[in-house]
Design a binder for these strands. Structure first.
Lengths: 220, 220
DNA sequence: TGTACATCAGTGAACGCGCGTTCACTGATGTAC
DNA sequence: TGTACATCAGTGAACGCGCGTTCACTGATGTAC
């Protein structure tokens, strides 16, 4: 009746999405194989037809998270409205994405420290990719506006750190308090961007801002 | 021979520090009561003389983390050397603190998303306190240097987010690569501080930096 | 100081339970002729 | 198209194990007189 490989894929994905849901509730580390199998509607023994053990499922889950991140960026870019600040519409797209996909985001944040080194490394790789894409966006925007930025890579890293860390609070917040949180993130990002601006009258402005040396060239 | 209450305190602390060590290795969520009791050198049943269940131990553990954060700030302040940048010496103190107390820090970062809502809330409270103290330090420094800052609270929040997020990488890094990481954090913090500066010729500078409105008053 | 009793941190055995893993199996889907 | 055999996702029972929790207990420390 139905294609066999297709059915297998279906079950596999059911395992992944069940694990995702359970991980978001109680952390991937405390999942049991039996529990995930049960949630996916198969017997524990059948689990082994799909993954060698539960850590292998974990890696598949990280792939899913990475996919989610890329989709998030696409969403943010799509939602850019020329009448509104790029930063503001991106942050709002981010917040609405992570509250709608809270499972994905909770796992992302939770397993950054939680799990094994291999697990962690895989997550850092995904995050690194994300930062790189933000860097490229910043560079394009900087050229478009003719506002040169110093240390674009570092600015992107800082922006992502702030957005993810502060944004994480949204998940525990009632809906009506989220715009306030978005506003806070927007202000912080603009603060970083202002700090990354290469001043037109370099010496003067940089003397005011930081007494210590500023590298004259944008690194990266 | 020995005072009874004192002995009890000793065992209690042994439980906490064993849990801390184990949590850092595999996450608090995956600890078992028996495992912690064994590591502390008592029988599982004796555990109940100290905590009602393992989550109660978890809360004690968060207190320990909070204590560690406060100690960290004290350490950072102590290490300020007038010949070096405040930011740089603070970041270096931070990195050396978290690598020496990696267990504490791993738990702090790991359980931010991992555990129950109550657990998470307790951690956020500790972090909020930390941000507040950084805010106060920034305000003092800003007055001392006569360099007014806008949105000091937001700047502190962003600085803490960046420091903790990027700093977390230090734990998986070989020792010789850490100075490079510190340098990255220092640059990012200075970027944020530059962005938080209230410009002397306000209109001009702010027009360059962000086309959208900047709130004229420091909030908080 | 000495004695008799109370307190209570820690013991060790026992319980029922969910765990990961194995195994021989079933029965629908796929393939060769 | 029909038949005979192969494949293999999923089943259900069984295993030994570590889990959290309970219980009556022990014996050192503390207290009252």
């Amino acid at each position: 009746m139905v294609d066999r490989g297709e059915q297998k894929q279906k079950t596999r994905h059911l395992l992944i999405s069940s694990a995702l849901k359970l991980s978001a509730e109680k952390g991937f580390a405390s999942l049991s194989l039996r529990e995930v199998a049960k949630a996916a509607g198969i017997t524990p023994a059948a689990f082994y037809r799909h993954f060698h053990d539960i850590d292998e499922l974990g890696l598949a889950l990280i792939d899913e998270v990475g996919l989610g991140l890329r989709q998030l960026l696409r969403e943010a870019r799509r939602s850019i409205d020329p009448n509104r600040s790029v930063v503001r519409s991106s942050v709002e797209a981010f917040i609405s994405y992570i509250t709608e996909n809270s499972n994905l985001f909770r796992v992302l944040q939770g397993e950054r420290q939680g799990a094994s080194t291999a697990f962690r490394r895989a997550l850092f790789t995904e995050l690194g990719r994300f930062i790189e894409e933000v860097t490229e966006d910043l560079e394009k925007e900087s050229i478009r506006k003719n506002q040169p930025l110093l240390d674009v890579g570092l600015a992107a890293e800082a922006i992502v750190a702030v957005t993810f860390t502060v944004g994480a609070e949204a998940l525990d917040l009632p809906k009506h308090k989220r715009p306030e949180l978005s506003e806070r993130i927007v202000k912080e990002i603009k603060m970083i961007l202002r700090g990354a601006l290469a001043m037109p009258e370099t010496t003067r402005a940089s003397k005011i801002s930081t007494p210590k040396k500023i590298k004259g060239k944008a690194s990266r």
